[in-house]
Each structure stands twice: as C-alpha cells, then as structure tokens.
Amino acid sequence: MTRFLQVVWLVVRKDLRVESRNKEMLVTTLFFAVSCVMVFAFAFVRGGRAVDGAAAGVLWIAVAFAGTLALGRAFERERYQDALRGLLLAPVDRPAIYLGKLSGLLLLLAVVELVVVLMVALMFQAPLFEHPFRMLALLALGTLGFASVGTLFSAMLVRTRSRAVLLPVLLYPVTIPVLIMGVSGTNVLWQPEPDLAMVQLWTSLLLFFDAVFLTLALWTFEPVMTE
C-alpha cells in the first residue's frame, strides 16, 4: 500500500515539476476560466444586478470548460517523446499512475477554482462565505467526479485521431449528472435563505456518483491502457 502511494506521489511530483518549470497549463487554464466568467458576466449582469440563479451555472460552466482544456493538455504532454509509453512500461500498478495524474489535475483545478469562485462571488454578488464548508464540499466533490471521468477518457483518447474534438463529446454526456448536481446544490446554497437539507441531498448524491465514477475508472484504466 505504501508503495502504491509512493507511485501516486511520484507521478504527482513529476507533473508538478514539469508545471513549475513552464507554468503552461496553469496560466492558460486560468486565463481561459477568467475570460469565460467575464463573457458570462457581460451576458448575465445588467445594471449591476445579476440574473437570478445565473451565478451557480456560470461557476460550474467555467470549471467544466477550463477542466476540459486542462485534461486535454495533461495527456497531450505525455505524448512527447513517448513519455506515456515510459510511464506505462514502468513496473508499477496502473491505477497508481491514474491516481497520480488525477491528483495533479485536481491540484491544478483547485487553484483555478479558487480564482473563479472569487470572481463569480464578486461579479454576481453571490453570498460565498455564508456556508464555506458546504460550498467547499460541493466544489471538491463535483470537481472530483468531473476529473475522475475526464482523466480516464483523456488518457484513453491519447492514441486516437481527432482527440481534441472527441474529449468534450464523450466527457460532457457522462459528467452531466455531476454538473447538474453541482449547479443545483450551489444554487440552493446561494439563495438568501438556503434549504440546507437540499444542499445535503445534492452533496451526498455527488459523493455517491464520485464513488461510482472512481471505481469504474480505477477498474477500467488498466485494460484500457494496455496495448
């Protein structure tokens, strides 16, 4: 088990080191997410007042779009000089590699979300700090559900043609339930008087979906990536 975690950590560290040297993914993803929120702010904020319920949707759309961008890059990078083959040839558990890539992406998305959430709160006047822990739980679980499927799909797409087009085409239908739950939960939470039981329901549903997605991804990663 410790060896498994060691491998996960090694893959995360590798990704972090590559990222810290050129900061390509972080900067591009962040910039994209910010411009996404800006476009929505122009569309949905009129005369200083945001359209009702728009904030939650904007937040999750920005996360999903920026996440797709990051997912595509995360494995595109492994194509150079057959880095992916090297990773897969290493005598370690494949699921550990998957978890390593997933953790790296989650770290990246956490930074992006930090900025996006603050921006949305500012531009759409969302009551962000009323229930910080519930908000954090929704964000973490929603991102995990989205990224767990995304990491698997983008790893699988590395070897296929037209992967840039196919990633969103495959990813969105499968992850729509997670995004719907995230949006609905956030929407309830940002009401003037939130119905906390509903927030609880959406959060536990997210947890349930995450468990299913992670299990399926860990189970299928090995056979899918075997040549």
Partner: peptide, 23 residues
C-alpha cells in the same frame, strides 16, 4: 457519443468505446 466515437475515433478507439459502454 459512443456511436460518434466509433465513427470518428479511428484505430485504437475500440477499447475507449468499451470503457464508455461500461459507463
């Protein structure tokens, strides 16, 4: 999406499609 992947994925997409089928 599964059918689109089959149509446009090219070689190597069969295992990916199988993963999608399970989902």
């Amino acid at each position: 999406a599964y059918l689109l992947l089959r149509q446009y994925g090219g070689p190597g997409s069969d295992r990916l499609a199988a993963g999608l089928g399970i989902f």
